[in-house]
Nucleic acid binder design. Structure first.
Ligand SMILES: [Mn+2]
Ligand SMILES: [Mn+2]
Ligand SMILES: [Zn+2]
Ligand SMILES: [Zn+2]
Lengths: 155, 155
DNA sequence: TTCTAATTGCAACTGCCTTGCATTTGCACT
DNA sequence: AGTGCAAATGCAAGGCAGTTGCAATTAGAA
């Protein structure tokens, strides 16, 4: 049964990192892995109330910090309000499309950088280890209703 | 004299946006335009104490909000702590190198995206208006002292 | 089962940022 | 130059995401 597989999967993940297995931790990992977009601590907190017994926000934050430092989770910041976002680290290189109309966040597999990174690496005196690319625009649902463009640039 | 040119330059900028000319506003614009890296509200506050009479933090924030909404200033968030950063909008398309060793932020003119954006535009059902690219790695000063790489990916 | 360090809940606290309100100031119009 | 008024500012209080100290609980090794 999938349930058991999942359960032991997270158990192993935690063991590998040398941290204890708790219901809160597996629940958080499960929610994050299943979701296709990054979540705030608050959103997690709400989801957790359905899944497990109640949990304290400080535990949510502490757990997410731990996961982030172990690279089980990737932390970022939401563009509009700077609030912290957390997503399961699938260890795959991907990017996001952010709709400036409805604030939807869409994952894409393509990495437009790749070889360009190599070129830059030689061109500048800087040892590149990674990058973050975010693309802005209007999603399918919003593109027909978008306002005439402002003079904002380099978003 | 340059001083006078600068002064009238900001005055015009403010007039064009239909907002009042005050010493705080020109001082903030001046500091931001002269600096080559984004600044926090706090850093601005400190710089302002040298330049003008004292200013309140709420005024700093309100001014930066106003400037951001008028696209005179670009707001972003620092990667490590999510704190708000503000930079003068030169209306030029540029990107940053972030040193993960010393947290220095270096501007680059090159945009590796360009035509790729056009390709994506046809490939996906999404109306691209812009993008943000940040490159991570070790600067000249830090590259020799960097630690053996961890398994962190997709930074 | 026993023992211990890690985890958790709770409550207080910090720091960034916002807001309400009284006062001041820029500036358009005489 | 003087007047009037909306916009800008300072001050103090407040809001909210995230942190921390501490005592109670719990995972898991032995
Ligand atoms: Mn990429
Ligand atoms: Mn670019
Ligand atoms: Zn949309
Ligand atoms: Zn460096």
């Amino acid at each position: 049964m999938i349930f058991l597989e999942q359960h032991s999967k997270y158990r192993e993940l935690l063991k590998r990192e040398g941290i204890k297995n708790t219901k809160h931790r597996t629940a958080i990992l499960e929610i994050l892995e299943e979701s296709d977009s990054p979540k705030t601590a608050e959103q997690l907190f709400i989801s957790l109330k359905d899944k497990t017994a109640s949990i304290d926000m400080s535990t949510v934050y502490r757990t997410l910090d731990t996961f982030t430092s172990k690279n089980l989770v990737v932390k970022s910041n939401r563009v509009d309000d700077g609030k912290a976002l957390y997503e399961f680290n699938h260890h795959e290189h991907k990017h996001h499309l952010l709709c400036v109309g409805c604030h939807k966040l869409i994952s894409i597999e393509d990495c437009p950088i790749g070889e360009l990174q190599q070129i830059l690496k030689r061109k500048i005196d800087f040892d590149i280890t990674g990058h973050k690319l975010e693309i802005y625009g209007y999603c399918r649902d919003c593109k027909n209703f978008k306002e005439p463009s402002t003079d904002s640039e380099d978003v």
